[in-house]
Design a protein around this nucleic acid. Structure first.
Length: 403
RNA sequence: GUGGACGUAGUUCAGUCGGUAGAGCACCAGUUUGUGGCACUGGGUGUCGCGGGUUCGAGCCCCGUCGUCCACCCCA
């Protein structure tokens, strides 16, 4: 027996229904916000992710499905969605058009990690990317959209926000932080010492208790923002207040990918185990130019589908369609043409074997059909078909032509 | 990559001191060959993850291996 690869899963029945419901709900809402669908390749040149996600992140360092294709190209299965969409935006020369562009996407992402609850090697994201809008109003709008999606899915969440500053205020802050960290270096954990070299901002994110204590006095970027970043962040909080979207400011919130700046946010659930982020995103004003496009401000997010799968409140499914069956073998073939006609409009389940009346009734229940329609001895003789509404138990016998 | 737990029927799980495997649910058939969901009766559907070892004998003990889960790391 061949099983799926480690960290990869088949979705069937209840799970696939949930998956579709999540996508359908998110798509419907994204469209209302003016987003249109974009499909980009799962396989991309490795350089794309190195330049966008960033060399310092673990995703690029050790988690990518990377290989050489038959033409000798260094390629990767996408570990996230934004890089590919940004690449497409530039490849299609949309950065040279004056109009703003908003895209939604969904599909599989791949990271070679040790699987655990809420973390798979092949997982799925629904995401949106808005290009060309520099206003913090767009940051607010995108957060409002996500909260609307979660509300529609019946998912509770905590929203955490932060500002990562811009190219003006971030670098001096980073200097400041590094020198602070250098002083307490000896007392920080092993991981933090490693992060000090690779990505010092991430040290703030350390979950180690003793590190947290030491870091409580660390300089906070939120207090060192330039005028523009500061006023934008204040505006964002004000807009969220007015819209009754609850949030907490987490000054240690750092997004894992290098391309983010200014607004960063994360939607958290405390009901799903240790991998608690159910959506994450923020502004990435520099990414397009990093990828050789015309400088274009942008903001986006992604929802982790698997992480919200069991949180979703599913709408009740109602009985639907017709169950067709016969009690005599001779009548079965008659059902087939009836089914073709009925399927123009509704769901039809056909039983190909003649069975007892009782067994058909049981099958119809199991098929969650609204109607059961049977042809037995009498009906076959008279050219009629017997129909029963399973819910209200009304039944009638009509000529087959009128069915 | 690191640490821990666990692999028995389709599924959830039980299996004592080592003596060739059992329950619920699901499934199939039947309870008047034309009135269903309920109930009742009957049916076990198994390479005990795999490979070695110990033993007269291993689901159980030992070693290895593969896999799953959980946590760390990281992230959606």
């Amino acid at each position: 027996m061949i099983n799926p690869l480690r960290g990869m899963k088949d979705l069937t029945f209840e799970e696939s229904r949930r998956y579709i419901h999540i996508i359908d709900t998110a798509v419907a809402i994204a469209k209302r916000y003016g987003y249109s669908y974009i499909e980009t390749p799962i396989l991309e040149e490795t350089a794309l992710f190195k330049r966008s996600v960033g060399n310092s992140s673990d995703i690029v360092n050790k988690e990518m499905y990377q290989f050489e294709d038959k033409g000798g190209y260094d390629v990767c299965m996408r570990p996230e969605g934004t890089a590919g969409v940004a690449r497409a935006f530039i490849s299609d020369k949309l950065d040279r058009q004056p109009i703003k562009q908003k895209f939604y996407y969904h599909g599989p992402m791949f990271r070679y990690e040790r699987p655990q609850k809420g973390r798979l090697r092949e997982f799925h994201q629904f995401g949106c990317e808005s290009f060309g809008e520099e206003s913090v109003y767009e940051d607010f709008t995108i957060i409002a959209m996500i909260s609307q999606i979660f509300d529609a899915l019946g998912i509770g969440y905590d929203l955490q926000i932060n500002s990562l500053g811009c190219s003006e205020c971030m670098p001096p802050y980073k200097q400041n932080l590094v020198s602070f960290l250098a002083d307490i270096k000896g007392d920080l954990c092993e991981d933090c010492n490693r992060r000090l070299d690779t990505n010092p901002i991430r040290v703030l994110d350390c979950k180690n208790k003793s590190c947290r204590l030491l870091l409580s006095n660390a300089p906070k970027l939120i207090n060192n923002l330039c005028n523009e970043c500061d006023s934008d962040f204040k505006k964002l909080t004000l807009l969220l207040d007015h819209a009754n979207i609850r949030y907490t400011i987490d000054t240690n919130l750092v997004r894992g990918l290098d391309y983010y700046n200014k607004t960063a946010f994360e939607f958290i659930s405390n009901e799903i185990g240790s991998q608690s982020a159910i959506a994450g995103g923020g502004r990435y004003d520099r990414l397009v130019e990093f990828l050789d496009g015309k400088p274009t401000p942008a903001v986006g997010f992604a929802i982790g589908i698997e992480r919200i799968m069991e949180l979703v409140k599913m709408p009740k499914t109602l009985p639907e369609g017709i169950y067709l069956g016969a009690m005599q073998e001779e009548a079965v073939e008659l059902l087939l043409s009836l089914a073709v006609r009925k399927r123009l409009k509704t769901k039809v389940t056909v039983e190909y074997h003649a069975r007892s009346f009782k067994s058909h009734m049981k099958n119809a229940d199991k098929a969650e059909a609204k109607y059961v329609a049977l042809i037995g001895e009498d009906e076959l003789k008279n050219g009629t078909i017997w129909i029963k509404d399973i819910e209200n138990r009304e039944e009638k016998t009509i000529p087959v032509e009128n069915f």
